[in-house]
Design a protein around this nucleic acid. Structure first.
Lengths: 131, 131
DNA sequence: GTTAGTGCAAAGGCTTTGCACTTCA
DNA sequence: TGAAGTGCAAAGCCTTTGCACTAAC
């Protein structure tokens, strides 16, 4: 059952670095950003390795995809608890927001017979750094 | 100022049909779905024309893109009023939901200095047809 | 030594663009 | 007729895959 650190069958500097980059961020990251971050530590890291590692991490449920209204897919660690996202329209960065501000709960039934199982909320605006 | 029906400089059966397909839907549509719908009336309609028309309609602010967590871009008419979306995890169709169920309003300031200007909510679950 | 993991380059899927043909005004 | 609009096919962008090489174990 041990699988806290090990991702594939072998340990590799590339994978450790990629996972570290995702874990150190204060919000979900683009594949491209992960690549740039990880390259600082593993200079000749290929983008294909980033995508392969992302796929592996998704399969192992260590990370999850976050797709917001800009259409780009970002990735964040699982186990962050229930939270939502804030996207800065200036710098396009995405931040985690703890807690929930939705007035309807999962499990509710909407008029018309729509059964709600989950929800997503994104706030859009300007982040402190860009204000 | 007149531009209620006219999209480009000339009228064309293709554009009218594409706009009609988007307008008749009960939720935002994929480019592919728009193409399929419109092809019923204009059989040899090319996908490039669909994308060009979408682009034109976006520029003219007649439609707007809707990107949900499945990563696919859909399009809906503007002027539907404030609303959110429901995505069925079974059939992957997206429906409009009137009203708002968010407990924080645009214009609010979040702890940390995040200025909220807009928001998006998506409910995920099972639609009446798939239940 | 085996073979998982990697980098490069080619291939795929969706969207955009170039170009010659069609059609509206 | 003149240019906007269209269809086809080629090109682009991001992501995935094939293949030979590298490096964990």
């Amino acid at each position: 059952m041990a699988k806290k650190k090990q991702i594939g069958q072998r340990q590799s500097r590339q994978r450790d670095t990629i996972l570290q980059a995702i874990g150190e961020a204060d919000g979900p990251l683009l594949a491209q950003t992960i690549h740039e971050q990880a390259k600082r530590r593993v200079p000749n890291l290929g983008i294909a390795t980033v995508y392969r590692t992302i796929k592996l991490l998704l399969e192992h449920q260590r990370i999850q995809p976050v797709v917001l209204s800009d259409g780009q897919t970002r990735y964040e660690l699982v186990g962050l608890g229930h939270h939502h996202h804030f996207r800065c329209r200036v710098c396009e960065r995405v931040y985690d927001l703890p807690g929930c501000m939705l007035s309807i709960s999962d499990g509710a039934q909407l008029p018309g017979g729509f059964q709600v199982e989950a929800h997503e909320v994104t706030l859009i605006g300007v982040c402190p750094g860009c204000a």
